[in-house]
C-alpha cells in the first residue's frame, strides 16, 4: 500500500514540560513581602500627587514617577470588585471548593489589593468590609499567601 492511501487515526505526541523559575523580588516587592512575614504589616508606597500604592511597585503605574516614602496601611478595608469562582479549576485556582477573588481598598491606600475570600465568600459584595486573616508566626514565608484570606467584618 502506498503511504498516501493509508488511513491513519489522529495521533498525538505527549510532552510534559517543567520550568521552575526563581524570580528575584527586588528591593520594593521584597520589602513588602518581608514585612508581611516579619511584621504582619501591609505597607504601601507614596507616589507623586500623594497617592499611596498598595501593593507597591517602586514607581507610579500612572505616570511613571518614582515611589517615595513607605506608608503603613491597615489590614482591613472595603471590597471594590468581587468575582465568585463557583467552578474552581484544578492546578490553577488555590482551593478545590468555591471561593471569591476580591479587590480590597485597604484603609490608607489609594489602589486596591487582589486577594481571596474563602469563609462565607457567598456573602461578600461590593462595599463589604473585610480584614486580613494572617498565617501564624513561624508559618509566614514572605508571600502574598502570608495572608490566608480576607474575612468579612460585620456591617458597621
Amino acid at each position: 500500500m502506498r503511504l498516501g492511501d493509508m488511513v491513519i487515526e489522529p495521533m498525538t505526541q505527549r510532552q510534559v514540560m517543567e520550568f521552575p523559575y526563581k524570580h528575584s523580588t527586588g528591593p520594593i516587592v521584597g520589602r513588602f513581602l518581608a514585612a508581611l512575614k516579619e511584621q504582619r504589616q501591609i505597607w504601601g508606597q507614596r507616589v507623586s500627587g500623594g497617592a499611596v500604592i498598595v501593593p507597591p511597585q517602586g514607581y507610579s503605574e500612572w505616570d511613571g514617577s518614582a515611589g517615595t516614602e513607605w506608608v503603613p496601611v491597615e489590614d482591613q478595608g472595603v471590597v471594590v470588585a468581587v468575582a465568585k469562582v463557583w467552578q474552581p479549576v484544578e492546578r490553577l485556582h488555590p482551593f478545590p471548593e468555591p471561593f471569591a477573588y476580591v479587590l480590597v481598598r485597604l484603609e490608607g491606600a489609594d489602589t486596591a489589593l487582589l486577594h481571596v475570600v474563602k469563609t462565607d465568600f457567598d456573602h461578600v459584595r461590593i462595599g463589604s468590609r473585610v480584614r486580613a486573616e494572617w498565617l501564624p508566626d513561624g508559618e509566614r514565608r514572605g508571600s502574598i499567601w502570608d495572608i490566608r484570606e480576607f474575612r468579612l467584618l460585620p456591617a458597621a
Partner: peptide, 11 residues
C-alpha cells in the same frame, strides 16, 4: 506578575 497576582491563581 509573579509576586502579587499570579500566585493567587487568577485567570
Amino acid at each position: 506578575d509573579p509576586y502579587y497576582h499570579a500566585p493567587l491563581g487568577i485567570d
